[in-house]
Amino acid sequence: MTTASALDARATPVRRLPPVDWLLVLSALAVAGVVARATLYTPADAMLGAVQRLFYVHVPSAILGMYVACSVMAIAGGLYLWIKDDRLDRIAESAAEVGFVFLTVVLVTGSIWGKASWGTYWAWEPRLTSALFLWFLVLSYLVLRDAIENREARARLSAVLGVLALLLVPFIHMTVYLFRGLHPEPIVLKPEKPAMSPEMLSTFGFAMLAFGLLFFAMIRLRYQWATARDARAELEQA
């Protein structure tokens, strides 16, 4: 095999990205629809008033940013260490970065809500503390990636951090529960019926779908960008 054909076989196929990412546009429209529905058609909470509407942003962001993104980051990292496929590293990278944005939204909306319902923007309460440490963890993952230039070493070392982070989360959870709680208990995913009016529940369902779509569209776009970047790096090296 000649050198040129060996390079061709190894290089990631370069595909031109469309000028407009229609999935992202669609998900942005869905989010706008949810905002309209939450503010115009859904009744406000009897006790908390209008600020309760942050619920439709806060909870989907928490589910997607904390549970989905962090699990994808850790599982893709673990699989990368096993089968060493660059695509897995790009998935982990995209999930971490998009997850970081969602986690930031969780902290900001949670703070505003906290001011309205507890009278303080921040309290050292178990769930808030866990969310904050998770935010720091994902941030350090992104900084680590940024600090390594060699692509293979970057994928390998950040995967180690991602897998260990998955082991750390239950410990942070146990540790912070040595303190007492202030955060409301789960409202939607309760074993009994959810403690919300039907309008609120359907708005929440739409919000979950819209933010889920946005989350997927953002990760997909970030993944395409990473593929293009890596392909370009390969061309420059060749």
């Binding site: 600090a147 390594i148 070392l157 982070a165």
Partner: peptide
């Protein structure tokens, strides 16, 4: 193995020290 070396260690390790230091 990184560019930042000593600067990076506290950032990576401190979140992991939380379940050690608080208890």
């Amino acid at each position: 193995n990184t560019r930042l070396a000593e600067m990076l260690l506290p950032m990576l390790a401190l979140p992991f020290f939380v379940p050690v230091l608080i208890p």
